[in-house]
Write a protein that binds this DNA or RNA. Sequence first.
RNA 1: GCCGGGAUGGCGGAAUUGGUAAACGCACGGGACUCAAAAUCCCGCGUUGGUGACAACGUGGGGGUUCGAUUCCCCCUCCCGGCACCA
Length: 872
Amino acid sequence: MQQQYPFKQIEQDAQTYWDDNQAFAAKVDSEKPKYYCLSMFPYPSGKLHMGHVRNYTIGDVLSRYHHMKGFNVLQPMGWDAFGLPAENAAIQNNVPPAKWTFDNIAYMRKQLKSLGFAIDWSRELATCQPEYYKWNQWLFLRMLEKGIAYKKTQTVNWDPVDQTVLANEQVIEGRGWRTGALVEKREIPGYYFNITSYAQQLLDDLDQLTGWPERVKTMQANWIGKSVGVRFAFTHDIKDANNRLIDDGKLWVFTTRADTIMGVTFCAVAAEHPLATLAAQNKPELAAFIEKCKLGSVTEADMATMEKEGMDTGLTVTHPLTGEAVPVWIGNYVLMSYGEGAVMAVPAHDERDFGFAKKYNLAIKQVIANADATFSDEAWQEWYGDKTKATCTNSGKYDGLAYEAAVDAIAEDLKAKSLGDKQINWRLRDWGVSRQRYWGCPIPIIHCDDCGDVAVPDDQLPVRLPEDCVPDGSGNPLNKLDSFINCACPSCGKPAKRETDTMDTFVDSSWYYARYASGQSSESMVDAETNHWMPVDQYIGGIEHAILHLLYSRFWSKVMRDLGLVNYDEPFANLLTQGMVLNHIFSRRTDKGGIEYFAPEEVSLVHDEHGKTIGATLLADGQPVDFQGMGTMSKSKRNGVDPQSLIEQYGADTARFFMMFAAPPEQTLEWSDSGVEGSHRFLKRLWNFGYALSTEAKTEIPVKLNSGLANARREIHLGLKQATYDLDRQQFNTVASSGMKILNTLEKVQKEAEQDWQSVAHEGLSILLRLLSPLTPHIAQTLWKELGYGDDILHASWPEALEAAMVQDQIKLMIQVNGKLRGDLEVSKTTNKEEIERLVVTQECVTKFLVDGATVRKIIVVPNKLINVVIG
RNA sequence: GCCGGGAUGGCGGAAUUGGUAAACGCACGGGACUCAAAAUCCCGCGUUGGUGACAACGUGGGGGUUCGAUUCCCCCUCCCGGCACCA
């Protein structure tokens, strides 16, 4: 053994040992409980960043801990390998995306291995491999057969930068989720997955996910957006230029407050609604208003502040229950994309309708009474909102009915007239999966002039993506590749054209976890082994996937289940969303008014005498720089830290330990170079302690230890108990703390060098190494072996905190007087309550308060903790 | 506006069922070693007053329950995340 913590040697040796023994290959074992631990697979962008290191360290800690606890652990890894960055890199460097991607994978795999993760590399996959994406295509065809996948031409979100379609989920505040470009509307044919038909299940099954963070479930529920109400129609005889009735003479609307239907005083339609279009034909001012609405509805800044504006179409429709004529307005607040693109307006009982009616002087008719309040302009919000308190009034036959009864009765009457019924509306839209991109999974369809769109037969799958294309930035290069496009129609044999659209890459990542868990045969998508490992026991990844990836994966699992491929409802039993990695941001205003950023290592902090940071200066010129606080690591702000240089300077164990120690896993982690050094210091001390310990003097712990050693042993076992508790609740920062405390204790004992200390030290170190091995596996494995505790620490059982070591003969009880801490009292553990009460009132810290006639009113004894003497 | 999560020393953060607030680490100050520096080790470190023993205050603010509240209840402020003219 060498002194001075030779981490490079230690880590290389340990990794070689694991490789040689295939230490992490997972095989089905019915004797042990299974634990499928999965971290979200990375996009092979080039090299790992700190977010990856944190993500995979969390997964590795859980995997190794469960391994030692006797679980049969599966921890696989792979690559989310299709996607746009590869195409952009191809354009820049004139390299085919395939080569770029596979080169990146090779480098990043090496990086992952250098971090010592307990990964079963035999299950590695990349989504750009035909053996994998074949099954995207195969399942796509099954979905097509079932009607879950279908083709339609629809107005879509078009990202002008990436030149492709985006799903609704990928549009964030009117901009592309990746490019940030303003999304345009285009009419394009494409394939869709009928995710809305699973909306109810996706909503209901959130209740099964007790191991998911509440906020993720809330976000998904909001996104699915269930809304229960009534869809009904106003009738009319409005005809277009060809004398045809518009929409068969019906203006359909959706409402969640059918109980207020008798209070309708106007209707509002979206600018794109057919009635609006018709009304604008002879009225230029209406046409101009419609144009204004269409323009204004795109950007999110306007959306929030936009005035409710409208214009009368001059048209009227007939109320289905009262028969009254109801004027139709165009309202800029009505969305064509939700419900029917038209709403009934009840100004007395809806905030927006109220504002609109006030502005344009439209009628307001109260139809809801509330026992607690009366209607007035100022106070209406107070009582309008609570439908549970409302009863109908001024509503003819519905008077006196409460909300639910009124809705039922009204829906019934509308149904009788074939003018409406109860309906559920969803915010969730079907998932458009066609992308006009090259580097993705080809959609297995052939277009034939005679037969139309024909599915590629199963025996011709996969439709292979040519891997030698270099995109030039002008759309999808497959469109120019005759060898790909031209083919024979599988149905009639005539020349036909292959579909060139590829699938959304979220399809690839919707089922990779199931493929890892299967035998990965070329004959089937998944096999029986999948059902053994699934569902994933612990899934770990970033919060940014709270909606997109997690919702799509849940949907995909249900489709696979309904096709009889798997037997689980939900793919991820427990979800841990790890926090981001932040670092200091330093900057300066430049002369030209721009901002210049400085890397943290170029800056020196200035402290006052208390150690408080009061400023920062640039090392190069000694002049002050602005400290902008913490932000996510990014190239542009120059505050990134490269994992590779960290590993080279301090080693993987230090990197892993610091990551776990600096913050609990779900919280943001603030990078600190001195914190990294502190972690390194700790591992150095650990190494030195192990190095100094003789391997010969290992003896049994004597029954009777002197008090110093007994206390030390007690602290070690208490630390172990705490660390185990913290691992079980996934709070790893305090696991690291416990490890540090145990080493502190061991070092103290070593200094006193009392009799029997070797046996206590060996027991303590063997506990400490096992406790640390999930966090810092290399040093733990090496010391474990060198000190002769065993060959492989991964196969050592998790240590048990011994009660016998933790009990103490003398207990220190804290003394409170009226709830304030005043002193302490040492007693034997056998002392009973009465004796303690008798003793405590003789203590000086208590008696000094028994003056001026004050007496002891009450004594509260909390066993093993404290005594509170109430004096008054 | 609605939903979810927060606020604890100079900093990151601990405190398991209501029971010693600030564990562990970083930063800072002092000391030892050294020609010197680095490394390492030792001591101190919530605020205020006091030479000191000690006392008062102290977990965003205000109130409450309790022998006892960072923890439970009510009200308020601020911060982070998500959703949103959703009818």
